Every structure is written in structure tokens, then in C-alpha cells.
Computed example of a mutant assay.
Amino acid sequence: MARAKTTTGWQAPPVADYEKLGAFYLGRPYDLVAKAPQPGLIAYDSKDLVTHAVCVGMTGSGKTGLCVDLIEEAALDGVPTIAIDPKGDLANLLLTFPDLRPEDFRPWVEEEEAAKKGQTADEFAAAEAERWREGLAAWGQDGERIRRLRAAADFAIYTPGSRSGIPLSIVRSFAAPSEAVRADEELLNDRVSGTATGLLALVGVETDPVQSREHILVSTLLTQAWQQGQDLDLGSLI
């Protein structure tokens, strides 16, 4: 979804031009010299994303914004995304407000930023809401497209080692599998091998499941406990 940026002197593209399955709407050509948008649309073919890609550019050139656009457009077309984001920038994907109301923006306003502009936090939130409304309209978009984005996908933030999002813990993987899994030797062996490999990788041990003494030891302990329906934790495993 194109970022909120007001423009003048040109007409927004018809929605039908870019709401095509598989075509990600990224905006319009932009003349850096004239500092103005140009006729035409920039649409990215989702078929080009089946292999590897890299996005490069100077600091502040818009790399994150472009990647966020791609993720949003993919979601609108029903294409899922798993994003590993050490910086935390992509969490902004959850800050989507279909009604574009000042009160939607208010909880995310930093008091210091508002003060720098000589505004109260409420005034700053109202100005941001209006800026986004005008900016989206200038690019042929509105709150309804944001609403479709929110309806098209479930957004979740997983935070390993932290409770600021949805926490992840390898300890939970030590719980005994279901009876159906324990009754299937192949499924049980796969679960044991995967858990042992993941645990050893966390401590920097790269192992061969067949020949590694460490892997064989951990796998044996897991198998014996799980066959009896016994849950384990790190303490009991050690």
C-alpha cells in the first residue's frame, strides 16, 4: 500500500488499474528533477518473487517502506509472509487504521515529537490522521482498502525470549507428543530428531543425527520419556 504522501497536479490512478490479482501496486513513476509524479503505474508481478531477491539503497532511501508495501500488497492478494525482523521496523504493519481517526493515532504519538512541532499530542494525532487521509487519496486509496488489508490476513508478532509480543519458547517443545504421534514410530522419531537437533543448535553444537554422540544421547532421553507420555523440561533433561 503506497505510503501517505500528498501530491498535486495529477490525477490518482483508477482503482481498477492496480487491483489485479498478482499485481502489487507500488505507486507511480516520479521525476526527481521536477519533484512530481509522472503518468502511469508501477505494478510488480508477484511471479517475480518465487526465488531470492535483495533490496539495497542508501540510509533513508525507502528500503523498509518498499518492503512493507510488498508485504501489504501480497496480503491483499492472499499471499502469506513470514518476516524475520531484527530491527523491529516491520511491526508497523499492524498500525493500520481503516477509519483514519485521530484517536486511532493518538496512542502511538510521542509527546516529545508533538512538542517539537508546537502541538499537543491530540493536535499532532489529528494532523497525522488528516495527512494520511489526504496522502492515501492522492494515490487512489482510502480507508476501505486498509480495511480489506486487515480482513485479508492475520498479523502476529512473535518475540523469542520476550513477552512484548507472542512469546516463543523451545521448552514447550519438550512436552510429550499426542498418543497418536507416540503410536506412530516414524512420526515419533521425526519429532525426537527435530527437537534434539534444535536444542543442540541453540548451544552451538552441529550434529549428525546418526553418528553424533550428543544427538544420540538427547534423542534417547526424549524417546524414553515420550514413549511413557512423560513431559520434560530443561532441568529434567539435564
Score class of each variant (00 low, 15 high):
V15S: 11
Y18V: 07
E19I: 01
K20E: 12
L26N: 01
D31F: 07
L32I: 13
K35C: 03
S46G: 01
K47I: 02
T51D: 11
V54H: 07
G57W: 12
S61Q: 11
T64M: 04
L66E: 01
C67D: 02
C67S: 06
A75P: 02
A75K: 00
P80D: 05
G88K: 08
L90P: 00
F97H: 13
P98F: 08
D99E: 15
D99G: 09
D104G: 07
D104Y: 08
V109W: 05
E113Q: 13
K116Q: 15
D122M: 02
E123V: 09
A126W: 03
E130Y: 02
Q141F: 06
D142K: 04
I146H: 13
R147M: 07
R147W: 02
R148I: 07
L149G: 04
R150E: 11
A151K: 14
A153G: 02
D154Y: 04
F155C: 04
I157R: 05
T159D: 00
P160R: 06
G161L: 00
G165M: 03
P167Y: 00
S169E: 12
S169R: 09
I170W: 07
A176F: 06
A183C: 06
E185C: 02
L188E: 08
N189M: 14
R191M: 10
V192A: 09
A196H: 09
A196V: 12
L200S: 06
L202H: 10
V203K: 10
G204N: 10
V205H: 11
V210E: 15
V218P: 04
L221W: 05
D231S: 14
D233M: 11
D233Q: 11
G235F: 13
I238K: 12
